[in-house]
Nucleic acid binder design. Structure first.
Length: 1176
RNA sequence: GCCGGUGUGGCGAAAUGGCAGACGCACAGGACUUAAAAUCCUGGGACCGUAAAAAGUCGUGUGGGUUCGAGUCCCACCACCGGCACCA
């Protein structure tokens, strides 16, 4: 494609300019901003030291930093980076102090494996890769503050990773305060005569970082152990090598202590629904009961009596205590400790055989081959506590030693797995739950119903619904000390050590006490960082000894003290990098506290300036009232003011806010509401609808807007809203305190009754979006939208963008570390990432496949079924014959569109072709290299295209033709501004001069003569302000694709203007700049002052204000429908009344035709929008 | 199996319950050109019409429902994508 504009000169020019001028430096409280910096000019900070109060509000916008692989950047990286860069530039223009950093997550296996192969030090590989990544990222013109760059493999960085590890090492989790505390607060158990060794052992057992001998995931090929999160289907996440369970001594982090908080705090952060679900899933909370079963030896015959000296107790975990009467056998995990004590001699051999059979299986076999249940009887029996029934105890590998108590009570009638097992081994199946639908088979029915056959001598739950039955039986068990309510999590402690070279060494040494017993101790903080030794051989050893152990000089310290030779996993460095960015040059501390508070938004918030007219006192109280923001992307949550806070607020202000509700919008702006009315609606099936009084018991309400009808004007002259639909749930009519805007929220979520008095919303069943406001009063609507992106900081990182692949690894670990640091007082927010967005995957370009049968004849895809993706090709079956066919990729030029299909270009066009997109992969050869795209179309076009493809979160296929489309658009922008003749001269000069002077030749290019310093015409203003409105709103909502289309619409219009008013075009450039910064800067410079080409960057120029007044039309085109079908359009005056609209509609000739001979039943008129005539 | 997400032209997509398909790609026709590229203009969901129009009918995965009006809200289902998967 012909070059549209000289991006090859413009882009490097501005990248160098920004770097030289430090245009995108983010300023910390206490820093002095250099003279003349546009940020200082904009915010009045010249010659001043910027303290936290004089700095504008912060905006922290973060990318997931990349692992610098040898392959270089792929097109997925710039997708997220472009989105964040656009927002960073937008926020800068809006007046924020924007923190937008970049760095390298550089520890990792590929560099180490390359080292093993070639002997090249991983540091060298890493440095080369970083250099290449940096070059590529810089060529995209992102506005990163490179002065804050971090590299996890830099000793200056991992010094603090080790420092945080020591914080974990020197802390324990206090269950009473539900938080981590330093070891000083740990009390020893009240036991006499604890020796120093006892005390040490106790302390070590309580640390957040501890050593455990546990069965771990050992990967032979990688020569290292792996975390649960790194094992997928029994294979290593990296490389896909088999993983086996093997007991080893390893470092663990006590993440399980935080399971509850990691789960609960998800509610307060703005992450996508699916991502939160993934985390919830991984945490795997389940509520149930532990029940103790007695295993009594006198239940066996006298000959065996001597083998059983005690009564044993076996505890099981179940989520369905209500099915206890249906427990017909028990199952233990083969690894269960009690096994040796209860197995009868007769069964001993069988049990031992089974145990060795199971231990020989890999994890993969244990899960994949588990379709058929296996197990053996132990010979022992337990007593069912409710009725004294003797139930046999089995062992089977479908019960996991690591979850719950490693033992279950099997209720085959109401558990799928137990049912399979019982069927195979002919164990009794006893119904204890009756399904609600009598036609449902009770066998294998696992849902809730009514308890049956559940009566014993002391307790009966027969006839109770499941929820009540659970509660009653649990209470009874608790009273008898036979059981208790329990919560279990699937989450396991984090296996934190790796047998690798290329990772952070542990700041730990091993010593021996007087008795020769080995113990560990922290390396003192002042000796950090502990650097890894130099090695010649990086290979792991097959016995699990880490490669660091080879460096004996490094390992062995004086007095027989030895270093820990394991290294930390790759995730360690990424657990806290977002904190190091805040203060990356600080060599004394990981970060400064004030700086952390400023960037994480915990300093005193400032009031939005635009709200000056609002009663400040109320605002202050409102600010004080909410300290725990709870909202998510789609759902605004209204919270009630806690009583204590309300009382406090009353003392301060005399204002009673107890009846207020608060809602945080997606910008963190607080809206207070006064409730007017609550109504309950139709009773839903199976569950009971909320009643008005229930509302007061709810801790939070998910609000959902639905049908709102205009209910006329009330005494105050305000529109009243009415809803008349039947809705299952409740409706709240409320008025926003600050603005007086009436809101209506329909609450269509149902509640389940729980045991206590408290009602809990059924999780995430809210269907709606947010409170909606009356759309009848336009000035109120304006008020809302104007105030939405307000200057109000949010807690933590304001926006974090990255791929889904880190949903449970990085994001869970980082939240965990952050919470520990929060507990210990090093950070000020409980969560690190306030809002998080996952970018969607970019697939390869569309590919065409033509099928051939076994004779090589081409066959139409129309007759092919069961098409599957088989390594690099497609296979399918012929529908008629069932014969196998294989597809071959063909070029797009061999294909012709025919109706809804693509056909092979033979004369008949009768052979249909299959078309689809695949994930980009080296082996398929469909990887798009960003360097190539940028070389051909430039960085601006590349950025623009990645954003124009579709919504950020969606999976979308790459299409090079699409890049050409946006490239053409940029060319049109260029031609909108420049004089064609001067450009031709430039091109001629460029082709005949030395390359070095090319950039100066840019100055040859003149502005178009059509650009004049004249006021814009009304229609020009209209086009501009429509664009301002759309781009601003879309950027706030992260809708980049539609923002770009608005820019295109403007340019399509403006290009035909005879005179182009310079002020309007300047505003347009500000709008375009976040998307295409290089082109915008270049044109801006020409526009500003052609005689002083080195004028200041447009990056800090204020974002244009949208003026709704210019968009008001004199006349409108109103569609007229008859029975909901469009029949005519009328042009009417904008202020036309209902009566005028009705008369005009009925007068229309076209409408008359449709009304002929029919009676008009009703006429629906929506002023300014539409008329609908309903006939009988 | 469980959980979550998504289904709209040939393709990427857009639409506070109110004119479905903005914007872009691909395509077709035209202008400019010796020609091509680039650029500019025009067209466009399908069907039925017609010399060409106009008018009309059907259209947002399927089937129901609510509503004057549904891509959008409710119920049931189907397909695809992603995650988890013997977690009691």
């Amino acid at each position: 494609m012909r070059r549209q504009y000289p991006f090859h000169l413009i882009e490097p020019k501005w990248q160098q300019f920004w770097e030289k001028e430090q245009t995108f430096r983010a300023w910390n409280p206490g820093e002095k901003i250099p003279q003349g910096h546009p940020f200082a000019q904009r915010h009045g900070l010249e010659n001043k030291k910027a303290d936290a109060n004089s700095l504008p509000p912060k905006f922290y916008i973060l990318d997931m930093f990349p692992y610098p692989s040898g392959a270089g950047l792929h097109v997925g990286h710039p997708e997220g980076y472009t989105a964040t860069d656009i927002l960073a530039r937008y926020r800068r223009a809006k007046g924020f102090n924007v923190l937008h950093p970049m760095g390298w997550d550089a520890f990792g296996l590929p560099a180490e494996q390359y080292a093993i192969k070639t002997g090249q030090h991983p540091r060298k590989t890493t440095e080369e890769n970083i250099a290449n990544f940096k070059r590529q990222i810089k060529s995209l013109g992102f506005s990163y503050d490179w002065s804050r760059e971090v590299d996890t493999t830099d000793p200056k960085y991992f010094k603090w990773t080790q420092w945080i590890f020591l914080k974990l090492y020197n802390s324990w989790f206090n269950p009473e305060t539900n938080k981590a505390e330093t070891m000083e607060t740990l009390r020893f158990p009240p036991k006499q005569n604890m020796t120093e060794a006892d005390k040490r052992a106790y302390r070590d057992s309580q640390r957040l970082a501890y050593v455990a001998e546990a069965p771990v995931n050992w990967c032979e090929e990688l020569g290292t152990v792996l975390a649960n999160e790194e094992v997928i289907d029994g294979k290593s996440d990296v490389g896909g090598f088999p993983v086996v369970r093997k007991p080893m001594r390893q470092w663990m982090l006590r993440i399980t202590a935080y399971a509850e908080r990691l789960l609960n705090d998800l509610e307060g952060i703005d992450w996508s629904h699916s991502l939160k679900e993934m985390q919830r899933n991984w945490l795997g909370r389940s509520e149930g009961a532990e029940i103790a079963f007695e295993v009594r030896h006198n239940t066996f015959d006298s000959k065996e009596r001597e083998f059983f000296h005690d009564t044993h107790w076996l505890t099981v975990f179940t989520t369905r205590p209500d099915t206890l009467f249906g427990a017909t056998y028990m199952v233990l995990a083969p690894e269960h400790k009690i096994l040796s004590q209860i197995t009868t001699p007769k069964q001993k051999e069988a049990v031992e055989d089974y145990k060795s059979f199971v231990s020989g299986k890999s994890d993969l076999e244990r899960t994949e081959l588990a379709k058929e249940k296996t197990g053996v009887f132990t010979g022992a029996y337990a007593l069912n506590p409710v009725n004294g029934e003797r139930i046999p105890i089995w062992i089977a590998d479908y019960v996991l030693a690591s979850y719950g108590t490693g033992a279950i009570m099997a209720v085959p009638a109401h558990d799928t797995r137990d049912y399979e097992f019982a069927t195979k081994f002919n164990l009794p199946i006893l119904q204890v739950v009756q399904p609600p639908n009598p036609k449902t088979d009770w066998r294998g029915f696992v849902d809730e119903g009514i308890s049956v056959n559940s009566s014993g001598p002391e307790i009966s739950i027969t006839g109770l619904p499941t929820t009540e039955a659970k509660k009653k039986i649990t209470d009874w068990l608790e009273a008898k000390s036979l059981g208790k309510k329990t919560i279990n999590y699937k989450l396991r402690d984090w296996l934190f050590s790796r047998q690798r070279y290329w990772g952070e060494p542990f700041p730990i040494v091993w010593k021996r006490d007087q008795d020769g017993k080995l113990f560990h101790e922290a390396v003192p903080e002042h000796l950090l960082p502990v650097r890894p030794p130099n090695l010649d051989d990086y290979k792991p050893t097959s016995d699990g000894r880490p490669p660091l152990a080879r460096a004996t000089d490094w390992v062995k310290l004086a007095n027989h003290v030895e270093r820990e030779t394991n290294t930390m996993p790759q995730w360690a460095g990424s657990c806290w990098y977002y904190l190091r960015y805040l203060d990356s040059q600080n060599s004394a501390r990981p970060w400064n506290n004030l700086v952390e508070k400023y960037w994480m938004g915990t300093l005193e918030p400032r009031l939005p300036e635009s709200n000056q007219e609002i009663d400040k006192e109320i605002k202050r109280v409102v600010d004080a009232a909410i300290f725990s923001p709870r909202h998510s992307r789609r759902t605004a949550i209204i919270g009630r003011v806690p009583k204590a806070v309300a009382a406090m607020a009353f003392q301060v202000s005399g204002l009673n806010i107890e009846d207020y509700f608060f809602r945080l919008d997606s910008y963190g702006v607080r809206h207070a509401f006064l409730q007017h009315k609550v109504e309950a609606f139709e009773k839903p099936r199976g569950q009971r609808a909320l009643a008005a009084e229930d509302f007061y018991k709810l801790p939070a309400v998910y609000a959902a807007p639905d049908h709102i009808e205009d209910g006329g004007i009330n005494q105050l002259g305000r529109r009243v809203l009415r809803f008349h639909k039947r809705i299952n749930g409740i409706a709240i009519v409320a008025e926003e305190v600050l603005t007086g805007i009436k809101c209506l929220a329909l609450q269509t979520m149902f509640v389940r009754e729980t045991a206590g008095d408290e009602l809990q919303p059924a999780r995430d069943t809210a269907i709606g979006v947010s409170l909606s406001t009356a759309d009848t009063d336009r000035s109120e609507e304006k008020f809302i939208s104007k105030n939405s992106p307000v200057n109000q900081p949010t807690l933590g990182v304001d926006l974090y963008v990255g791929g889904t692949e880190h949903a449970v690894l990085h994001l869970l670990y980082a939240r965990f570390w952050h919470k520990v640091l929060f507990d210990l007082g090093y950070v000020s927010t409980p969560e690190p990432f306030f809002k998080l967005v996952n970018q969607g995957l970019i697939l390869g370009e569309m590919e065409f496949y033509i099928f051939r049968d076994k004779n090589g004849e081409r066959v139409s895809a129309a007759g092919i079924v069961d098409i599957e993706d088989a390594a690099e090709t497609l296979v399918g079956k012929e529908k008629v014959t069932g014969a196998k066919v294989v597809a071959h990729k063909i070029d797009a030029s061999e294909v012709e569109k025919r109706g809804a299909f693509f056909c092979w270009k033979n004369p008949d066009l009768d052979i249909r072709v299959d078309f689809r997109c695949f994930k980009m992969s080296k082996s398929r050869g469909n990887v798009v290299n960003p360097d190539d795209v940028m070389g051909e179309y430039g960085a601006d076009a590349f950025r623009l295209y990645e954003m124009f493809m579709g919504p950020l979160e969606m999976v979308k296929p790459w299409n090079t033709k699409g890049v050409e489309g946006v490239y053409r658009f940029l060319g049109r922008v260029w031609r909108l501004f420049v004089d064609e003749k001067s450009e031709t001269e430039f091109e001629q000069a460029e082709s005949t001069t030395e390359a070095q002077t090319h950039r100066e030749l840019l100055e040859k290019i003149q502005l178009s003569a059509a650009i004049k310093d004249v006021p814009a015409s009304p229609s020009q203003l209209k086009a501009l302000h429509a664009c301002i409105k759309k781009v601003t709103e879309d950027l706030d909502a992260l809708r980049f694709n539609t923002a770009i289309s608005a820019l295109m619409v403007f340019v399509n219009d403006a290009i035909s203007w005879e005179t182009k008013p310079v002020s309007g075009l300047r505003d347009f450039l500000i709008l375009l700049a976040p998307f295409a910064p290089h082109l915008s800067e270049e044109v801006w410079q020409k526009l500003q002052n052609p005689r002083h080409p080195q004028s200041v960057s447009l990056s800090y120029h204020p974002w244009p204000e949208f003026d709704p007044a210019v968009l008001i039309e004199d006349t409108l085109e109103i569609p007229v429908q008859v029975n909901g079908k469009l029949r005519d359009r009328l042009r009417v005056a904008a202020g036309a009344t209902r009566e005028q609209l009705e008369a005009a509609s009925l007068a229309s000739e076209k409408i008359k035709f449709f009304l002929e001979g029919k009676a008009v039943k009703k006429i629906v008129i929506v002023p300014m929008r539409l008329v609908n005539i309903v006939l009988e």
